[in-house]
Amino acid sequence: MRLKIPTNFRIVRLPCTGKIDIIHILRAFEKGADGLYVVGCMEGDCHFNQGNFRARKRVEQAAKILDQVGVGGERVRMYNLSSGEGPLFAQYSIEMVNKIKEMGPSPVRLAKQKKATAA
């Protein structure tokens, strides 16, 4: 397919999106990530039945926490697609990267940079 996708995000592979936990998402932001999205299988198509539903709930919880601490819950999102939808994967990655660019850097990253400059 040779699809073009942005180069400024890192893919972390999981055996199933049901493996993701809230703390994994929060740690990414704590370490300075500007955004994060989870790509799971289509709802109803999970090999483990509920993995992607669990992931969605955890993404929602993480978003709520990020809102409460002033980082912004919109920086995290869940997408669903099937493994045969490469073009859609590319489209989602472009969509997410553009959205995060619009939002600007994460306040955590800015604060860390400010601290590092001051030191």
Binding site: I23, L26, R27, F29, Q68, V69, G70, L110, A111
Partner: peptide, 10 residues
């Protein structure tokens, strides 16, 4: 993690 993020942004 949430508290650390909150206080660092403050």
């Amino acid at each position: 993690s949430a508290l650390r993020m909150y206080f660092i942004t403050q």
